[in-house]
Computed example of a mutant assay.
Amino acid sequence: MPTGVALRDVREQLFDAAERILLRDGPSALTSRAVTMEAGCAKGVLHRHFDDFDAFLAEFVFDRIHRMDAHAAALRDLAGTGTVADNLTDALTALFGSVAVAIVPLLTFRDEVRARLRRAWPAGVPVLTEACTMIASYLAAERDLGRIAAEADIETLAPTLIGAGHLLFADRKGAPPEAGAVRKMVSTVLAGVVVQEPLF
């Protein structure tokens, strides 16, 4: 695209390009040139909208974190429907099938991006801590409905599910785990806290 041609939603176009590169080629392939080429725009466009490439990447991570809000709300809305294990299996599969897993090595790979995020996010890996909050909110809703035991330690269960889920999905180049494997992990973590629903 020639320089000077107005781009509609240029930030989102650049973020989408970065996501495609990250998922396809990994964090080492993310450069300002690669992002602008993927987005189909002139090289200078990115630097007209962001102070530098690390600022762009930090904003990209925050943008993807904020997108998780809709997923969190949808998961909370499932409380009381289906089974707890199935709801969490689907939620974890969607979470780790997204860019969330790919952002973790990006933060490991880019010290300056991690430092910038740390100023606004003082603890934990942003995507994973937000995912823990999402899972904890759902588990709390199920506990309120009596489908999770009142004494369940949600603050421990949520990060355990995220950590175990991350290990299942972490091999970016390999095939994703089958739903049965994810469900087995969820059921194992929640063993003893899911209240048996009556059979009619």
Rank of each mutant, 00 (worst) to 15 (best):
157 L>G: 12
94 A>Y: 04
3 T>E: 12
149 A>N: 04
117 L>M: 13
176 P>V: 01
16 D>G: 14
189 V>C: 05
29 A>C: 11
97 G>L: 04
120 A>T: 14
178 E>Q: 03
113 V>S: 11
155 E>Y: 06
124 G>L: 09
183 R>H: 10
109 F>T: 12
147 R>Y: 00
109 F>S: 15
113 V>N: 09
189 V>E: 05
100 A>M: 11
81 T>A: 11
74 A>K: 11
63 D>R: 07
114 R>I: 01
50 F>R: 12
177 P>M: 01
60 F>M: 09
6 A>K: 08
186 V>E: 02
115 A>L: 09
157 L>K: 10
124 G>P: 14
20 R>P: 00
184 K>L: 11
47 H>R: 13
142 E>G: 05
128 L>E: 13
148 I>T: 08
181 A>I: 02
26 G>H: 08
60 F>H: 14
44 G>W: 01
177 P>E: 02
71 H>C: 00
3 T>H: 09
181 A>W: 03
126 P>F: 05
196 Q>K: 14
77 D>C: 00
160 T>L: 01
182 V>M: 00
177 P>H: 03
190 L>M: 10
79 A>R: 06
196 Q>P: 04
141 A>C: 08
178 E>V: 02
106 L>T: 13
183 R>M: 01
162 I>C: 01
22 L>F: 05
129 T>C: 12
182 V>G: 01
5 V>C: 01
123 A>D: 14
102 A>E: 09
149 A>R: 13
78 L>R: 15
38 E>S: 05
26 G>D: 06
10 V>I: 00
82 G>S: 07
186 V>Y: 04
181 A>E: 05
49 H>M: 00
79 A>G: 00
73 A>M: 00
133 T>C: 10
141 A>M: 02
193 V>H: 01
159 P>C: 01
190 L>I: 01
119 R>N: 09
91 A>P: 12
44 G>L: 02
34 A>N: 10
98 S>W: 08
104 V>W: 07
69 D>C: 01
43 K>N: 10
97 G>F: 04
137 S>D: 15
78 L>K: 15
40 G>C: 07
34 A>Q: 11
40 G>E: 05
13 Q>M: 00
142 E>F: 05
61 V>R: 05
91 A>K: 09
171 D>C: 03
200 F>R: 15
5 V>S: 07
114 R>E: 09
17 A>Q: 11
52 D>K: 11
51 D>G: 10
35 V>P: 13
140 A>C: 03
31 T>G: 06
49 H>W: 06
52 D>M: 07
161 L>K: 11
9 D>L: 04
87 N>E: 02
168 L>I: 02
48 R>Y: 09
